[in-house]
Design a protein around this nucleic acid. Structure first.
Length: 850
RNA sequence: GCCGGAGUGGCGAAAUUGGUAUACGCACCAGACUCAAAAUCUGGCGAGGUCACACUCAUGUCGGUUCGAGUCCGACCUCCGGCACCA
């Protein structure tokens, strides 16, 4: 240890030691309890940004803390290395995506090491390597066999800028998740994974994880799955045997239905129109809608409602009324049954539609009025039929104009009418979901090829497991448009049929990269397995993940896919649990001021407000950068970058450094002086008290991930150390013992946030023999932490008027007497009647006077 | 529009969950060291008020509960985020 703190020297030194001793590698048969600490794996763009630094600094703090608390901590890292940017680089600069990716990985691995993140590098994985994506393909085949992977033609989300298909999750909000461009619809034949098969479980199992996941993520997942309870009702069609099935959550409004409206793509439409004079008109209308949708450049702008009367008549099974059947653009084919009953009086969309096309609007729900003439105890629902019908009345209420059901409350009517429909055989209860199947086809080169072969004789044939992986060719032509570049590589496309041996062509689509990331953290548990994606026994040991850390931008992408994938793997018999992540923390963004403005935005190259981690490390050291990032804001908040803030971090580390340097010799040479606490000087007792209070605080704050207050507590302890003015050479045994205790505790507790400097000081304090990772987390002694003197605030009528000194042993009676006798207090109580005195032990006295 | 979350010094933020509001840090001010500056160290730092106390007012606004409210309840305002015809 040098007199001066040179971060660049010690950081390099310890990074090398950790690497050479493989300090953070873990084994499966370690007897200590396990802890799986995971951060979302990065895309290898070539450089870490500050958001990454924050993510991985938080993760490393957790990993270190748990390690020092005696856990066998699995803390791995890998690369989400398939995807667009590599292909863009290939298109623009003609480089090979593989070389480009591998170079970037090497650059970023170097940055991770310069940050000193304590990863088990022996478990590093990369999605673009055949030994990884082989298992993506294997999983695909398992799903294909079970009907969970299928191909169909459909309108999909398309990012016109990146020229690629996006899943619903990736185009949430109507914009591309990566570049923010408004998506359009394109009709494409593509592969889907049947995530909807798991809709109910994805919704229901949220209760299993709700204690450990942030509410905002749970909410978004709940909304995304969009579970909705209601009823289906079959409407007979006049002159046909067919029935039109509708879904509704408001069957209580069915007497107000004045039309049936179906989607333009409704499968019954063509059949029902046979022989109708309106057939051509309706067909033309439907095709017009389809064309308009394909041409739309921004899906976030709502379409105007348009429709056409088909001339078909349907019969309301509740009252026998005949209703016209309309086709309209506002009814979606892929939700519910693609048909609705139109109740203009009680649904905003139906109201708008009915107003436009002058369909009848009939009120069947009245607002409840509370009739309390019965003495106030009974609330009798009355009716207010004067509901303003200039807009839809969508609240629950009392049924009116509804035959025998009139007078019932909506809530009850829904239950009873659903049961009635079921008894009569024309309907029943139903649950629908907003969730759609996951489209995974990408017309791209840089992804895992879908392991399917098309044979003229046998049709769609899965590649046999023994022939996996289907590897990417070395070279391809990258145009950036149209079909997958794989289609232009004959040696890839042309193959023989695995079934009949005849000539066949390979599928040229590759898989969405979110397939890779759906199960990567399972692979960390068994990264070199070449006969299976992983050994289930190893999974049972490590997963569920104990703490997962990443951005909330993945709330309904990665985080829903990986939950689906886990449930799918459970059904394959590979894992025995349904939820892969026990606790999730979503860290806030790192923002910086955009030059010349007052706006704080996420750091980015295009805005010119980025900060290069390497420059920060060079200027201040990795420890100070990490410490500042953890200190500057609570982990979930936005973090506004500040250069002067990071300087504060350096100052703190330097102060601690100097103290340790000044005392190290004395602490090492002196024996193990201990001194009875009650004989020590007040100065020493006060330091020891602070030490033990800090241990308690920091330990608790780590469990809550309150890392900012954690740093503050360590700063306070360091300030308390500074209060000891004794010269190390002449310090008393009691002082030396207290200093040793405080410094050891401080250094160990600092390790999770500033590991290099902590390791160096740990060595200086005499622990050369063992690395800091083997140190024991300090143990709080509640007796030593206890305050001996208390300053008790005294209030009069709730206003602070004075303070009196007491000890924890002071009785309530004594406190009361002391408070009442206090001079300042007396000036407020003089001549007034004391109503009562409230005493909160060790806390406060409040005197109530009149 | 619907659904969430949040409003505390000049700034980032604390507050043991109803008990001394503003811990810790940044910025700023003053002093020490220095020829000087930087660095470092010491002290100050919510607003009003006072020579200094005292005292008064302050946690988005208004009201309520309570001996006592940043914390609980009601209404409102503002900002941020999510969703997009989901029947």
């Amino acid at each position: 240890m040098n007199e001066k703190y040179f971060p660049e020297v010690i950081e390099k030194k310890w990074q090398q030691v950790w690497e050479e001793t493989r300090a953070f590698e873990v084994t499966d048969n370690d007897p200590r309890p396990k802890f799986y600490c995971l951060e979302m794996l990065p895309y290898p763009s070539g450089f870490l940004h500050m958001g990454h630094v924050r993510n991985y600094s938080i993760g490393d703090a957790v990993a270190w803390f748990k390690r020092l608390r005696g856990f066998n901590v699995l803390h791995p890292i890998g690369w989400d290395s398939f995807g667009q940017p590599a292909e863009q680089a290939a298109i623009k600069r003609g480089v090979n995506p593989r070389d480009w990716t591998e170079e970037n990985i090497a650059l970023m691995r170097g940055q991770f090491k310069r940050l000193g993140i304590s990863y088990d590098w022996s478990r590093e994985i990369a999605a673009h390597r055949p030994d990884y994506y082989k298992w993506d393909q294997w999983f695909f085949l398992q799903m294909f066999e079970r009907g969970l992977a299928y191909k169909r033609q459909s309108a999909v989300n398309w990012c016109p800028r990146e020229e690629t298909v996006l899943s619903n999750e990736q185009s949430s909000g109507g914009v591309c998740w990566r570049c923010g461009t408004a998506v359009i619809k394109k009709d494409i034949n593509q592969w889907f994974l049947r995530i909807t098969e798991y809709a109910e479980q994805l919704a229901a199992d949220l209760t299993e994880i709700e204690a450990g996941w942030p509410e905002k993520v749970l909410k978004r997942q709940r909304d995304w799955v969009g579970r909705s309870e209601g009823a289906y009702i079959d409407f007979a069609v006049q002159g046909h045997d067919e029935k039109i099935r509708i879904f509704t959550t408001r069957v209580d409004t069915i007497f107000g239905a004045t039309a049936i409206v179906i989607a333009t793509e409704h499968p019954l439409l063509e059949k029902l129109l046979e022989g109708s004079s309106l057939k051509e008109d309706v067909k033309r209308f439907a095709e017009g809608i389809k064309a308009a949708r394909a041409a739309r450049s921004d899906l976030t702008i709502e379409e105007e409602k348009v429709g056409i009367n088909t001339g078909i008549l349907a019969v309301n099974p509740f009252n026998g009324e005949t209703l016209p059947v309309w086709v309209a653009n506002y009814v979606l084919m892929d939700y519910g049954s693609g048909a609705v009953m139109s109740v203009p009086a009680h649904d905003e969309r139906d109201f708008e539609f009915a107003t436009k096309y002058t369909l009848p609007i009939r009120q069947v729900i009245a607002r409840i009025t509370h009739d309390q003439t019965g003495g106030g105890a009974d609330v009798v629902p009355g009716q207010d039929q004067s509901v303003d019908m200039r807009e839809a009345f969508t609240d629950y209420g009392v049924l009116v104009n509804s035959g025998d059901w009139s007078g019932k409350l909506s809530r009850d009517a829904i239950v009873e009418m659903t049961r009635y429909a079921e008894e009569k055989g024309f309907g029943g209860g139903a649950v629908t979901y907003r969730l759609r199947d996951w489209g995974i086809s990408r017309q791209r080169f840089w992804g895992a090829p879908v392991p399917i072969v098309y044979c003229q004789a046998c049709g769609t044939v899965p590649v046999p497991e023994k022939d996996l992986p289907v590897t990417l060719p070395e070279r391809a032509q990258f145009s950036g448009a149209g079909e997958s570049p794989l289609a232009g590589v004959p040696e890839f496309v042309n193959t023989s049929c695995p079934q009949c041996g005849g000539p066949a062509k390979r599928e040229t689509d590759t898989m969405d990269t979110f397939v890779d990331s759906s199960w990567y953290f399972f692979r960390y548990c068994d990264p070199r397995n070449d006969s299976a994606p992983f050994d289930p026994k190893k999974i049972a040991k490590w997963i569920p993940v104990d703490q997962y850390i990443g951005g909330d931008s993945h709330a309904v992408m990665h985080l829903i896919y990986t939950r689906f994938w886990t449930k799918m793997m459970r059904d394959l018999g590979l894992v025995s649990f349904a939820e892969p992540v026990k606790k999730l923390m979503t860290q806030g963004m790192v923002t910086n001021r955009v030059e010349g403005t007052d706006e704080w935005k996420a750091m980015s190259k295009s805005l010119g407000n980025g900060v290069d981690p390497d420059e920060m490390i060079a200027a201040y050291g990795a420890d100070a950068a990490r410490l500042f990032i953890l200190f500057a804001a609570p982990v979930e908040n936005e973090l506004r970058w500040s250069e002067s803030g990071i300087e504060g971090g350096v100052r703190f580390l330097r102060r601690v450094w100097t103290m340790v340097w000044r005392w190290q010799e004395r602490l090492l040479s002196a024996g193990d002086e201990s001194m009875p606490f009650d004989q020590a000087s007040e100065e020493v007792r006060s330091l020891r008290r602070k030490t033990h209070q800090t241990i308690a605080r920091v330990t608790a704050d780590f469990e809550k991930l309150d890392l900012n207050t954690n740093v503050a507590a360590l700063m306070e302890l360091s300030n308390a150390l500074g209060e000891i003015k004794a010269d190390p050479a002449t310090a008393s045994p009691g002082e030396v013992a207290a200093m040793r205790e405080a410094m050891h505790a401080l250094v160990v507790m600092l390790a999770p946030m500033a590991p290099h400097v902590a390791e160096e000081m740990w060595e200086a304090l005499g622990h050369e023999g063992g690395l800091l990772k083997g140190a024991k987390w300090p143990q709080e002694d509640a007796e030593l932490a206890r305050k001996e003197e208390l300053e008790i605030p005294v209030q009069v009528n709730g206003k602070l008027r004075s303070r009196i000194m007491a000890t924890p042993e002071t009785s309530d009676e004594e406190l009361r007497a002391a408070a009442l006798a206090d001079e300042k207090v007396r000036s407020f109580t003089e001549g007034r009647e004391i109503v009562k005195v409230i005493i909160i032990p060790q806390r406060l006295v409040n005197i109530v006077v009149k």
